Simulated scan of single mutants.
Amino acid sequence: MHPLKKNRPLRRIVLAGAATVSGMVLLLSLKPHTSPTLAATGVTSPTESSSSAQPGGSGGSSGPAPGTRTGSRTATGDTVQTRWGPVQVRVTIKDGRLTDVTAVDYPQDNPRDQEINSYALPQLRREALSAQSADIDMVSGATYTSTGYQQSLQSALDSAGI
């Protein structure tokens, strides 16, 4: 006998109720998707410092001519808001080459963030140093952090004049 026969209305009610509850559970368990570009709206301004500046008041010697790319300087990129938290990068430039990249701020609120970033940030740093630009590959499993890192890195390189 078929379960939805007309002579068994209680069975139909139970099956319809179970289907409705199952559908609602599936619907409510879906997480909304936000793209990284929409989440990256909160940005702060970059800061720049130079370690090639001459300390003291000695006016006898002058630093490098304006526009030349000698000495060592650092620049901090914009803070990029990602879905999982802010990402900010600081770069060190020496003689016109990218010599160091440091993640100043990154998501680390929970153990999963810490686990992801413990392997993603060193990979992103290596990529940036080998590419000498912000044109770097994303790290699988750390897409939001990679996107924020790339945007902040580009901002830092722009403010450093590279």
Rank of each mutant, 00 (worst) to 15 (best):
A19Q: 02
R126P: 01
V139L: 13
S146D: 09
T47Y: 07
Q114K: 13
Q54W: 10
G96L: 15
A65K: 06
G56M: 10
S51A: 13
L153G: 00
S72K: 08
D78P: 05
T34W: 10
S118T: 08
G161L: 02
D78T: 13
S133M: 01
G71V: 01
W84G: 10
N110M: 04
G63L: 02
V25E: 13
I13G: 11
A18L: 15
G59E: 12
S118R: 10
T76Y: 07
D135T: 02
A156G: 07
L98V: 05
S72M: 10
I93R: 00
P107Y: 08
G60V: 15
L10G: 05
T145H: 08
L121A: 09
P122F: 01
S52L: 07
A75P: 02
G161D: 10
P9D: 09
T99V: 12
T20Y: 05
A19N: 00
H2Q: 11
Q81D: 13
V80T: 03
D105L: 08
I93F: 01
S22P: 02
D78I: 11
L28M: 05
T102C: 04
T34K: 11
G23H: 03
G141A: 06
R12N: 08
S35D: 13
P9F: 00
V89L: 06
Q151D: 07
L153Q: 03
P107R: 10
S51E: 05
G42Q: 12
L4H: 07
I93C: 02
H2M: 11
L28C: 09
L129G: 01
L4W: 01
L10W: 11
A160T: 02
A160P: 02
G42V: 15
A18E: 00
G17H: 04
G67M: 01
R83K: 12
L121Y: 12
I116L: 14
L98K: 02
A53Q: 12
S62T: 14
G67E: 06
Y149L: 10
Q154V: 01
T79E: 09
Q108P: 00
G148R: 02
T145S: 14
V104G: 07
R112M: 14
A156F: 07
R11E: 12
Q150G: 03
T82V: 05
K31Q: 14
E48T: 04
P64K: 15
A53R: 14
T92A: 04
L27G: 12
T82P: 04
V87H: 03
M138N: 15
P3T: 00
P55D: 01
P46G: 08
E48W: 00
Y149T: 13
G141H: 09
V21T: 07
T44N: 15
G63Q: 06
T92F: 00
R125P: 02
S61K: 12
T79W: 03
D100T: 04
L121P: 09
A39I: 06
L15A: 13
P122A: 07
D105A: 05
T47C: 02
Q132I: 00
L157Y: 01
A75T: 03
A19G: 12
I162C: 05
S72I: 15
G42N: 13
S45V: 09
D95T: 00
T20Q: 04
A160L: 01
